[in-house]
Design a protein around this nucleic acid. Sequence first.
DNA 1: AACTTTCTCAACCGCGTTATT
DNA 2: TAATAACGCGGTTGAGAAAGT
Length: 550
Amino acid sequence: MMRRMKKEIEDGMLLNDHTEPQLNDEGYEGSVCGVVLKKGPWTSAEDDILVNYVKKNGEGNWNAVQKQTGLLRCGKSCRLRWANHLRPNLKKGAFNAEEELLIAELHSKLGNRWARMAAQLPGRTDNEIKNYWNTRVKRCQRAGLPVYPPGVQQETPRDQSTGGINGDHKLHPDFLQKKSYDDIHDAIFDSLKDNQGILPYVPELCDISAYGNMLNGFDSYQYCSFLPATSNHKILLESTMPFLDSSGNNNRSGFYPFDHIQDNTSDNLTQSFGMQSPLDPGLSSHSSMCYSHSLKNGNSSTSKPFEAVKLELPSLQYSEIDLGSWGTSSTPPLLESIEDFIQSDTPISTLESDCSSPQNSGLLDALLYPAKTLGSSKNNFYDKCSNSSIATPGDRADSSALNMYEPEWEEYADPVPPFGASSILNEFPAVSANRNSLDEQPPVQNFDGNIVKSEYADQIWTPDSENQIMSLLINSRPDFLLASDWYEPASGQLTNQSIATDATSPFLGDHLATDNKHMTAGTSISNHVWEFGSCAWNNMPAVCHMSDLG
DNA sequence: AACTTTCTCAACCGCGTTATT
DNA sequence: TAATAACGCGGTTGAGAAAGT
């Protein structure tokens, strides 16, 4: 049908005079007062008619378009065409990283309320958002990955066949019933309780309680994902660097240095707590795929009705620079070297388990966890890495080696992930400015950046302290070195590179720190990574001296 | 090169809501 | 107040492009 209609379109058919329309012809359907209305793709001529009509009469009264212009389109179709393609100020092209993140966050709050989501994304249409999200959900579901990025939590478990609740990943029943931050935290806490003594990396409850609010950074329900573990190390390795694009360049929006990392050896943990450890064989390349709008070719199909040159067929395709995404990437070249490394006799399990952490928290809270977990006596890091005393559940004494850091941890025990979604969104006032009008949502709990910020007003969190945390955590996460450009340079803030280099220099020497500045090259990075990992982790006590980080 | 599969997105459809008479 | 029209929204479809085999 469409092909035939296309031919008709190409033949210049436009029934905009008041002559008798082609009756019952394919591509024409329905009728108003005996006029058979056309269906299918719009032509530029039709667009012109509609645009002229709107210029003259304004929006609305769409059924009058056909009557006044003879355009053989129903009012519904006219409205849709105008809203989605012809109206001015439409933002064409692929979603950028900020938009993607905002969409995820909005969806987590609103579910499939595309129009409301579109209202928060100036220049974007509900249809566009819907298509994007459905595609994303589809891909994530196929990959067995959570739909939401780190820091984005499912607040309103609405249906939503299209992934309102994380696609295939079922939330813990508790989570499905939890709505508020506190409730979600409680659910996690309960989960931890349940698993205490079972999970190798679950800190003892008192520790968790101490920084329980930190778990707000966990409430992204990725932490409740139940992902199958595999032993596909190649995939695993690809997953470790989803933030590098195929050219080895940093993908600035791929702030997923540790996402989707799961450890075979800690399945108990990952499955019970939703945590995932750094080397997740099962997550694979889709860690980059999942969180990215598909922009493989930088193509974005949109109509450009006001282009000087119009094509006869409506759907103009034009390319744009890939604006980035949550990790759009292909396998970076350095993976090979790491793969070689993995394929060597190096005991993967050691590396994996040593770096066990919740993934998917993304950003700073992702870093907070391992660092704080290291401060917990239950983390068996020392068992494997430094021959320190082995922590056992409930054995507080074994954490004495880290007690010296407690004041610092307390200071930074920000209940709100400083790098959570709201933090990020606050970085993009243009995006977040108009986010306080979500109905059915108490403003204080949602997207009003100011209000959200005030919510944290009593927290000690300054750029300086954040930087310190960043520096600290750099040293606690070997894999951080792999995270390039995930920390958006901003005034008064460190970039990842400056953080990494500055923070790592004391431990790694300048050569590595310097190399890190050029780590887009895939050469010996793997060695550096592991070297750094070994060094940093084995020097953890020293690393944790905050005075070294100033 | 040919074929198949997957992806993307514009457009349609049905239904609910709102406005008008 | 009811009936009707108009509008808006969300779900679905299918063509064409892109990627894979």
